[in-house]
Amino acid sequence: MQTQRGLWLFLVPSGLVISLVLLYPLGYAIYLSFFNYYLGGQPPTFIGFGNYVALFGDERFWGSIGKTVLIVAGAVSLEFVLGLAVAFGLYKLTFGVKPLNLLMFLPHIVTPVVAALFLRWIFTGRWGLLDAIIMSFNIFPPDWLGTPGWARFTVIVADAWQFTPFMILVLYAGLNTVDNSQIESAQMDGAGNWTILTRIMLPAIKPLILFVLAIRIMDAFRFFDQIYVLTAGGPGTATETLTMYTYALAFRLLEIGKASALGVLTLLLSALTIGLVIAVLYRRDKGAF
């Protein structure tokens, strides 16, 4: 028991920094979500759950939830499937893994503010690289950023471009930890790659899968820069996500109270999603997590 108490001391430095620097702003933001607070004017007035009630009656709120869930689900699953495929490919590859690994990781280190601009130069109509390549075959491609369906697709691809490398790196690491003897014995039994991957390797790295999915889901819910630069929520409102709405409330309308309430709801929604992922991943063995 003495050991257990001693462990708390290890939390002190980190806890101190977090509570000094992060807890106040976070707490203050949550506190403000119960106030009518217009940044330009009078001091905040307490309105209880008024902001939340207003949001629940707001068609824009529900619309942006739908679009957010769609974009998050699309982006994270694309990243996971692609990341896993590439990681497994790397795992199987017997040569050239190191340089490939490094090169593949590069999109992840591009500064996010500019990453979106890089992609804009690819996807913009006419003078964008993608258009130019397709047009050289005399095909007129769709407007990647200007038609609702394609704009959502492009935004998902943009997120995947930056974060699939993260998935690859972590999943590749995970695959390498899987016990070789298990794989070999399965191969003896004549199991193919697919069986080995889904029956042996994936179950073995389940905690890791949860880790990457959770991290990505959280971040994708806050996904902002790329949408802001690529589509600015458009065309129409096709890519208007929760964070875009939060931004509009906080910085354009200066309604800090309502924006904070939306932030809290975003937090709850992503917690819920992660809870759902845990429930699905661990549906057979509940106690394990």
């Binding site: 933001a29 940044l39 959280m218 971040d219 819910f221 929760l242 939060t246 800090i256 939306l262």
Partner: peptide, 15 residues
């Protein structure tokens, strides 16, 4: 985790 989930743009002003 909850700290990571909160939209950062809302932390900018308190920060």
């Amino acid at each position: 985790l909850a700290m990571r989930m909160f939209p950062h743009i809302l932390l900018a002003i308190p920060f």
